[in-house]
Amino acid sequence: MVWRMPAEGAAHERTWMAFPREGVTLGSTDAEREEGYAAWTAVAHAIAAFEHVTMVVDPSETARARRMLGEGVELVEAPLDEFWMRDVGPTFVVDDEDGRLGAVDWIFNGWGAPAWAEWQRSAALGRIVGELAGAEVVPSLLVNEGGGIHVDGEGTVLLTETVQLDPRRNPHADRARVEAELARTLGAERAIWLPRGLTRDYEDFGTNGHVDIVAAFAGPGRVLLHEQQDAAHPDHAVGRELRELLEGAVDARGRALEVVALPAPATLRDDDGFVDWSYVNHSLVDGGVVACGFGEPEADARARAILAEAYPGREVVTVDARPIFARGGGIHCITQQQPTPGR
């Protein structure tokens, strides 16, 4: 078997999501909880306009999920606590020898087992979702999340030193061990290590630097990079550092990388400090792109135009992602694509 993770723009069988359930992530008030349910529902409906969506639902939320999602989204029940499907679910791969579908079952420990996280139930979803998809489950001893990697489908993976090498995740790991496991599970021949992620992501409710909020392959040899244009925001300096590194990198095929800036919206702060609002955290679907929106018409339109150019022939739609970011992530973080077998 030769496992390979296809590029996210390859043909999909479906997108997987997980419906929110009550807990610290969803919010402590009725208004906060309703906002969270509505945000996840809006993303599911946007994706369902392009491709099949399967939503994993904790039994305690089945009635609400049926009422809010309607007939256009398939529901399956499984126990869960955290509901960021990119991270708690499997990473789907294909066997380059016979086209079979695989599902890499990473170890999930709640982004480093912080005291606030409720993750023990969702730690089983990699296996559960893989089996529901009819995939061969590929076990891994690496503590990892889908938001911590991004691939070009041709042997290159982007990742950050502060995630896979996080001593709260993998205390005995080094670059060589991580790269060997990503080669076995994803077919990664070259790893491009970024030194860090966005500033907000290092606070208590962050992931310690997920790559999928800062950089993403838009195609072979082409990377979309979050750009904070205001020097008053600490991510202005972060972006400059990452651009320099990426412009000096080559992919698995020996190509120099073209770096395409995806500017941040104008808002710099919310009630909790500097925001990490990023258009990089979009979801690719068959024939489309579901992009994060931040209530800024000019900035949202600019992002749609850049994404439309980056992904020719795809319709770009915007969903308000502010309620998702307020809970620790974006649209890419709550979705996981299942590639079409043999593609």
Score class of each variant (00 low, 15 high):
180 A>G: 13
263 P>D: 08
308 A>H: 07
280 V>S: 04
273 G>C: 10
26 L>E: 00
167 P>H: 08
64 R>I: 06
305 A>P: 00
131 E>I: 14
55 M>L: 13
312 P>W: 01
339 P>R: 08
298 E>R: 13
158 L>C: 11
157 V>N: 00
236 H>I: 12
243 R>F: 03
326 A>G: 13
232 A>Y: 03
59 P>D: 11
256 A>Q: 14
259 V>H: 02
148 G>R: 01
338 Q>H: 13
253 R>C: 09
24 V>H: 08
152 D>A: 06
151 V>T: 09
178 V>M: 04
17 M>L: 13
33 R>K: 15
249 A>C: 14
41 T>Q: 12
140 S>I: 14
27 G>M: 07
75 L>E: 05
40 W>K: 06
216 A>Y: 01
190 R>F: 11
104 V>D: 04
27 G>Q: 10
205 F>N: 08
97 E>M: 08
3 W>G: 00
215 A>G: 13
145 E>T: 10
157 V>L: 13
59 P>W: 12
61 E>K: 07
67 R>N: 13
136 E>N: 06
165 L>E: 10
112 G>N: 03
280 V>P: 02
142 L>N: 04
250 V>G: 05
312 P>G: 14
326 A>P: 05
156 T>G: 05
50 F>R: 01
156 T>D: 00
1 M>Q: 09
105 D>L: 03
298 E>Q: 14
89 G>A: 14
129 V>I: 15
299 A>S: 13
28 S>Q: 14
329 G>W: 06
177 R>F: 01
299 A>I: 02
342 G>W: 09
143 V>Q: 02
280 V>E: 03
194 L>C: 12
